[in-house]
Design a protein around this nucleic acid. Sequence first.
DNA 1: CCGTATCCAATAAGATACTG
DNA 2: CAGTATCTTATTGGATACGG
Lengths: 241, 241
Amino acid sequence: MLEDCSCASYIATVQLEKLTRQRQGEVRKGYDDACGTAHGLELLGDRWALLIMRELLLGPRRFTDLRRDLPGISANVLSQRLEELEGRGLLRKVRLPPPAARDVYQATAWGLEIKPVIIELGRFAARSPGHDATLPLSPVSLMTSFETMIDPRKARGFTGRIGVQMGEETFIAQVEEERITVARAPLEEAAAVIGGEPEAIAAVVYGGGPAESLTIEGDVSLARRFLTLFTLPPKADARQS
Amino acid sequence: MLEDCSCASYIATVQLEKLTRQRQGEVRKGYDDACGTAHGLELLGDRWALLIMRELLLGPRRFTDLRRDLPGISANVLSQRLEELEGRGLLRKVRLPPPAARDVYQATAWGLEIKPVIIELGRFAARSPGHDATLPLSPVSLMTSFETMIDPRKARGFTGRIGVQMGEETFIAQVEEERITVARAPLEEAAAVIGGEPEAIAAVVYGGGPAESLTIEGDVSLARRFLTLFTLPPKADARQS
DNA sequence: CCGTATCCAATAAGATACTG
DNA sequence: CAGTATCTTATTGGATACGG
């Protein structure tokens, strides 16, 4: 009797473990590899996961914000990813106090540490011959690209706080000592404010388009010089080595 | 008539494009996002892809080497990934000249540039409360972890070339000016040689285990000090922020 | 031995409709 | 608005058989 039961019991135990793991947002399919990189992929290797974290780099977002800025993600997948990432400790679901009374998703302190991975992966992919820079671009992507692509040589001697307005969203990029920091912030303290769609700003900064397609307020010459501080790396020759 | 045909013709065109893309090893499912990070995920976001690149960081490998060091990957998935990565320009399949006459997979110059992503993802994941350091570890993973976890404070004043032998595979780690470089190399020029399974070496370096479980030849005190140059970061508190 | 190709069962992703 | 539920399709992994 006991022997007859043991197999079914084992299966039930395995399935219970699986359910428990899923409920806690833990890893579903491990790589069976102690390498940190492998564990990193278990945490963030699911489709959309890293892009969700990218959208949280500059502050909390609502479900609908994320859905809009991740073109093509479906509601159920976004919902599932958010649960998993929360279970893994990378973000938290926070209910804003009334009268807002809305849920926002906020990266944890540890979750924000993924930023170097996002930066380096962006830098790597910018050298891809297959990179299509004409696709849609989210405001956070554009601001993060500034951190990746700032060219210290061009930024020498440049100091200033430049506001960037894209629809309802406003950011400030502060350049000082050949370094740039970006943050969500009101535009009051900006010496100049650049306005436009993310794709239009990218076209000027990275595509050499004319700055006339953007709106600029405040110190116009400072803003125009800001738009020239960034350099895309040369495309890789995939045939080499 | 033409209207009746157009739909079927459109479907045929779409399917042809899909086949063409698959044959060229290009991206199957895009993120429709100009962000470099998103494109990076299209290049390397498939399951196993980044770990395959990790295994190529320190030189070309054969199919069977990869299969052994990526526990759990199946032959058909490995085969498919290698084709895709070759089509994307990240690695090349190279036939060694006779008498070896074997195929090896070698990262391209551009493909090797993924290394900062692997390093940073490993650094991030090392802070995960869920990281299980007792799982299997490949030789390349261990050597790469040395580059990630070298502690400049502990390495101050340390200079030397330490050989590491794991089964048939040999590496040299060179430490100088608080920096480390690792490479596949014969052991002749090493001042000391540490031998053992990757997991055993990791247990000493990161788990505080006794160095007696390893074999050490040459300058034993140098080798023992080498084993203390690395620090795991503290675990993240997932509840914070 | 070194892979490749094919089939199958289990999962994950995507599309769509629906509910509080 | 903020998600769930359900259904369909695509991908994965494992087993196995096959070719050089």
